[in-house]
């Protein structure tokens, strides 16, 4: 019996783990993704994002815990679930023997779509990906950004209710990234639920209504990007480069000037309410930093706070 409430939840995970041999990739995570929202998984490489994505894509089964997608159990009804999903894997994987058009058409066949519908959608999707003029080319000849757009177009062939994107813009130049983001907004407006993993802060802030931060196979925080920043970081950040001297040794002497400080290899971060005021105090205290940068707190700072590491570590 499906309740109204349950039909609003697209994915529900309770205590989900995934173990490969001796390695615990995912160590018991809970999350719920609601229809129409765009939900992010943020974390460095090896945090367990991709393993989680593969389970949510109904390609790999959890070692323990309960997971349901569209209210169905992926272990027994994977095929049915995948029929309603679109997946953009981290690596672009095409059928290199076939042209762009045939790649899309064949993909439609895997979903058992009628040929007439496939023909129609293939044209639309090539248009969507800005690749209509390359339709008869082999996929091998495409640039990285084109391949990524084609992967996304391909994932839309079955008009999915839920689109899962694993690191959608890794390796793309800024222009290609913005084009992709624009495409994703369009889908979101059309009511598609999005799941996005990324290790780019700006991407998470731009695209996600809600996100979880993952580290070492666990979820360490959950919320809307702005809320996470308010909860886990100060309003502003002052970044100081203090020259050749050892940052770690100097740091304690700066501690009084900020709510909290973080010492990185090449700089010190001061979490404060007003970076301007703090910089003045720093100067008054007799410091002459080589370089000082004032900025608003970001998800990067949230992540640093929660895990003690930067995202690209």
């Amino acid at each position: 019996m499906t309740t109204l409430d349950a039909s609003d939840d697209v994915v529900r995970a309770r205590g989900v783990t995934k173990r490969f041999g001796d390695f615990d990739a995912v160590r018991g995570i809970d999350f719920t993704i609601r229809r129409g929202e765009s939900f992010g998984f943020l974390g460095p490489n090896g945090a367990g994002k991709t393993s989680t994505m593969r389970m949510v894509s109904a390609v790999s089964t959890p070692t323990s815990g309960s997971l349901d997608i569209f209210g169905l159990d992926p272990a027994s009804r994977g095929s049915e679930i995948r029929g309603r999903l679109g997946v953009v894997p981290q690596e672009d994987t095409f059928d290199l023997d076939l042209s762009l058009r045939l790649n899309l058409e064949m993909f439609g066949r895997y979903f058992d779509l009628p040929r007439r519908v496939i023909k129609e959608r293939t044209g639309e999707l090539l248009e969507f990906a800005h690749l209509s003029d390359r339709a008869e080319d082999k996929v091998d000849n495409l640039s990285g950004g084109m391949k990524r757009r084609l992967t996304i177009a391909r994932a839309l062939m079955n008009r999915p209710e839920l689109l899962i994107l694993d690191e959608p813009t890794t390796g793309l130049d800024p222009q290609a990234r913005h084009l992709l983001w624009e495409r994703l907004y369009r889908l979101k407006r059309e009511g598609v639920t999005l799941i996005i993993t990324t290790h780019y802060m700006d991407e998470a802030e731009q695209l996600c209504d809600r996100l979880v931060v993952m580290d070492h196979g666990r979820i360490v925080a959950e919320g809307a990007p702005a809320d996470l920043i308010t909860t886990h970081a100060s309003r502003e950040v002052l970044e100081l480069r203090l020259g050749a001297e050892d940052h770690a040794a100097l740091a304690p002497r700066l501690a009084d000037l900020a709510e909290r400080i973080e010492v990185l290899a090449d700089r010190v971060l001061l979490y404060v309410d007003s970076a301007d005021d703090t910089l003045a105090s720093v100067h008054r205290a007799g410091w002459r930093p080589e370089r000082a940068l004032q900025r608003r707190s970001s998800l990067e700072d949230v992540f640093l706070r929660l895990t003690g590491r930067t995202l690209d570590e």
Partner: peptide
């Protein structure tokens, strides 16, 4: 290519 085929009902 099989990985992408597995994102379908196959």
């Amino acid at each position: 290519a099989y990985d992408s085929m597995l994102t379908t009902p196959l």
